[in-house]
Design a protein around this nucleic acid. Structure first.
Lengths: 115, 115
DNA sequence: TTCTTATATGCGCATATACTCATACTATAT
DNA sequence: ATATAGTATGAGTATATGCGCATATAAGAA
């Protein structure tokens, strides 16, 4: 329980989650949308994964992160809370715009994703 | 949002909350039930209050802390989550026993509380 | 093979957090 | 006024966390 809250108690990680609500993302997309360094993006995603909130799979060079089904099932109320509150973050509007741009610009080639 | 999660990302503070679910408590009760130093108890309660999760009132020498109504109203889903999960903490059983003992032993005179 | 791309991680630094001890503050009791 | 009880907070210390930089690893492309 503490691990989940620790993972959630950082601005950058909440911003990451607010975008992952829209669907799975790879590290380079986070890096581009949220303008953070690659190592920083990777570390935050690792924290979120270790807490059980995210899960990941690899395809080619890319690691795709998405919300863990197990997390949703075991933390229904918290998940509902996050869905409501994350899109109300002050950063969300501009982050979501950047996310839309990323999608059209295909900054990395990760749109080759299997799903 | 981050402030709430930061306040929740510490074991002692979750234990404090698990007891405050039962009703309001003063600092010396936390101190006695959870066997922490007075300053430690006070600081954790201050963190929880600053995050908006707890509110407090003073009566005589005592400061009583309880869940903030505003917090409950503005964070319904999170509050539901906490009510379910806090009593499942590994520490809860023995903490709750200590809490019961405190109540009967009247360790401090704070049972003179107005409510 | 060698080069490129995407990701993960070791290291060092700066800052944040939690703890203890001592002390200040506040309200009551004598 | 002085003593006592409950609480809050400053100072110092130890640990945790987040960051950038450099590098390692892994998978594809040329």
């Amino acid at each position: 329980m503490v691990d989940i809250f620790k993972a959630l108690s950082e601005d950058s990680r909440l911003r990451i989650l607010s975008l992952i609500l829209e669907g799975e993302l790879c590290v380079c997309e986070i890096e581009a949308c949220l303008k953070m360094t690659q190592s920083n993006a990777s570390r935050h995603l690792t924290v979120l994964k270790k807490s059980g909130i995210l899960e990941s799979y690899k395809h080619a060079q890319w690691t795709y992160y998405k919300i863990s089904n197990g997390f949703i099932q075991e933390n229904k109320e918290l998940w509902e809370y996050l869905k409501i509150k994350l899109i109300k973050l002050p950063s969300y509007l501009s982050d979501y715009e950047a996310y839309q741009k990323c999608k059209t610009q295909e900054l990395c080639n990760c749109n080759k994703r299997p799903h």
